[in-house]
Amino acid sequence: MSQWVFNGIRAGIKTTAYPKGAETAAGTTPGLPAGGDFGAAAARALIERCPTQVFSLADGKVKANVRRCIHCYRCVRAVENKANWEQTYEWTITREGQNEFLSAFKKSIHILVVDAGDCGACLNEVRQLNNPYYNMHRLGFFITPTPRHADVLLAVGPGTDHMRPALKKIYDAMPGPKKVVAVGACALSGGVFAESFVCANGISDVLPVALEIPGNPPPPLAILHGLLVATGRGPAASVLSMLLSGSEAAK
């Protein structure tokens, strides 16, 4: 067994600099589209091309509702007028009307992860938070299997019909104060499953959602950011996004 200890130490530190510094490694985030100034025709093409109605026109500018983005890349790949694509990961959206946590929750929270019909990707990204690269424990985030110990309900998936009673039960079983964090496009808006008669239009149809983390799936860093925001220590988004450059992705 000692070989494992030695081997573990020899592997060195892999943990990301985030949130103290920025994570710049390639492939850590799929990025999200952004709005901008397009010509009228290009804007119309963009709006039509998107299968989940991310883009809309307001005051002559294209606005991107990133909550709906499912990373189909149809606005940037194999088309002429590409949408702006930002390779960031601090995407958390705070919904209004949700109570703030007490300061007692600033340092550490216990998180209950509920799969409400997820495709497996969001859940897998949440699982990555435990691997040495992200190591959420260092930030005081712990996964708990029981709602009795949970402060945050991290919900993934669109909220399927069969899971709805379970979601309500889980939420009711949690002691207050509590927050629901919806992770991924499906949990935010139903994503590609929204039209299905057994899927809700996101978790907010079932539970009061406090925070939304867009992305399909949001990368581990985005989820980490969401959790930091939930505990009231989220770093300012604008500073970090500037540090990040483009990716080697899609030409």
Binding site: R148, K169, I170, D172
Partner: peptide, 12 residues
């Protein structure tokens, strides 16, 4: 003091 139903894993 709030009383919650027992936790049963979310079964119906």
């Amino acid at each position: 003091l709030s009383r919650r139903a027992r936790w049963d894993g979310g079964v119906r």
